[in-house]
Design a protein around this nucleic acid. Structure first.
Lengths: 116, 116
DNA sequence: CTGTTACATGTGTCTTTTACATGTAGGTAG
DNA sequence: CTACCTACATGTAAAAGACACATGTAACAG
């Protein structure tokens, strides 16, 4: 352990980028780089690590939560476009429930923090 | 990473037990094992890992965020009682701020999730 | 035609954080 | 004494995250 409190105190939600990806993909099929640019608006992070993002996407695909296809024809490098599956949609719903629980726990904490 | 259909999806806040410890210690000096029993009511977890708890407490002390003294005389094994320092109090305030940010990010997510 | 920048997808590897298991020891009840 | 509870502590491995770098397309400047 690197001394609690020395650096972060960012109170990040674990693997938060995952439900955010699913939410963005529910809205429309998108490719990785575009997701990378859309993520910070929802995660609050200034940047998200590219390498990890692509790894998460591949993991999601391996588990049948998204499907992908190579987008050809357009100018520029080939893009891999991801689309949400029914399974992925269900996982997103699960995440939403879990996040509501998190919000309640944070509220409980803050109430007790302020209430004195 | 376990199998995604079966992943935890608990949406835990990273190192959440740390601010909870600080909050409990702000209310009154307490020893480790008692904190262990009080934690779940705030963290929402059924149990908190003992090993990690004591490591966090030691880390907090190393950084001057809490002080401890061995409590003798009472029945049962000797207890190490922890007390919050001024520094620790400041860290708690920092956490509270960060957690408010987290709540806002979760709200943004949930709004966008429900809004359709 | 060379260099630079932007787009786009990845791999390698180390550190941090969490989870699970185990160890030590005093006190208490049968 | 021995089984159990309290109380504190260490060992270790997996999960999650951070950081660095590799590969290739295409546009544009000089």
């Amino acid at each position: 352990m690197v001394r609690p409190g020395h650096w972060g105190v960012r109170a990040r939600v674990e693997r938060f980028s995952e439900p955010v990806l699913l939410l963005l993909l529910r809205e429309r099929p998108t490719h990785g780089y575009e997701l990378l640019e859309a993520l910070p608006s929802l995660t609050g992070e200034t940047r998200v690590d590219m390498g990890n993002l692509y790894r998460v996407l591949r993991g999601l695909e391996e588990d049948g939560l998204v499907t992908s296809r190579w987008e050809a024809g357009e100018p520029g490098p080939a893009k891999r476009t991801y689309e949400l599956t029914v399974e992925g949609r269900r996982l997103l719903d699960e995440w939403a429930g879990a996040l509501q629980g998190s919000r309640e726990r944070i509220d409980t904490f803050l109430d007790r923090y302020e209430g004195r």
